[in-house]
Computed example of a mutant assay.
Amino acid sequence: MRRGRNPRRAYDEDGREIAPPSVGSARAQGETTISAHCHDCCHHAIVSTDRFPIDMPIPDIAPRLRCSACGSKHIGVMMDMEAH
């Protein structure tokens, strides 16, 4: 990984950041929840995006979460595929 890159972002082959979906763009598609998983204990939860600003990128929600099972802050988030 190159220095200065955000680990919560994707990059194309030329090193340009690929913009992640925002809470607002997900809501525009009818998505109101995200899937969160704990990297430490493997706990999984569905989290409402109602409390987050609409311009917040989905990956930036992870640092604001804590596992309800073990208390870890090592959380990953992604679109809630089960909602489809």
Rank of each mutant, 00 (worst) to 15 (best):
D12F: 10
M79K: 12
M56W: 09
G24M: 06
C67L: 04
P7C: 04
P57Y: 08
I18H: 03
R5F: 08
V47M: 01
G30T: 07
S48H: 01
C41T: 03
R51T: 13
R27E: 09
E31W: 11
T49N: 05
A19D: 13
T32K: 13
A45H: 08
R3D: 12
A45L: 04
M78Y: 10
I34N: 00
D14G: 09
P63S: 06
I18L: 15
M1T: 13
L65A: 04
I58R: 04
R8W: 05
P53V: 04
A69S: 12
E82M: 10
R27N: 00
C38P: 09
H43D: 09
G24F: 06
N6V: 09
R27I: 03
R16F: 14
R5E: 15
P7M: 03
L65W: 03
H39N: 15
G4W: 09
D40S: 10
E17F: 01
A10C: 11
E13R: 14
M56V: 13
I54N: 14
F52S: 01
E31I: 07
M79E: 14
A26E: 01
P20F: 06
P63N: 11
I46V: 15
I61A: 09
M56T: 12
I75R: 03
R16P: 07
Q29S: 14
R2C: 05
E17C: 02
A36Q: 07
P7Q: 05
R2A: 12
I46M: 11
P57F: 09
E13Q: 13
A45T: 10
K73G: 11
G15Q: 05
H39P: 00
G30K: 11
S48W: 01
M78W: 14
I18T: 02
M81L: 15
I75T: 03
H44F: 14
R9D: 11
R5Q: 15
H44V: 15
I34Y: 00
H39Y: 10
A28G: 08
P59F: 04
F52H: 03
S72N: 10
T49E: 02
S48T: 03
D80L: 08
N6H: 14
H37P: 00
A26Y: 05
C38T: 03
T49Q: 00
I75Q: 00
D55F: 07
I54K: 07
I34D: 01
V23I: 04
M1P: 13
H74M: 10
R2S: 08
G30F: 07
H37D: 02
R8T: 04
S25Q: 11
R66S: 09
F52L: 01
S68T: 11
I46R: 08
N6R: 11
G4A: 07
T49A: 02
M56Y: 01
P20Q: 07
D60M: 06
Y11V: 05
P7R: 08
P53W: 08
D14Q: 09
S72Q: 14
D80I: 09
R2E: 08
A26G: 02
E31F: 14
K73N: 13
R3G: 00
R2P: 14
H84S: 08
Y11W: 10
R27L: 11
R64G: 10
C42H: 15
V23D: 00
A28V: 05
A62D: 04
H74K: 14
E13G: 06
E82S: 08
R9S: 01
L65D: 05
G15A: 05
S68R: 12
R16H: 13
M79L: 14
P53F: 04
R64C: 13
K73C: 06
P20T: 13
H43Q: 05
M81G: 09
G30D: 13
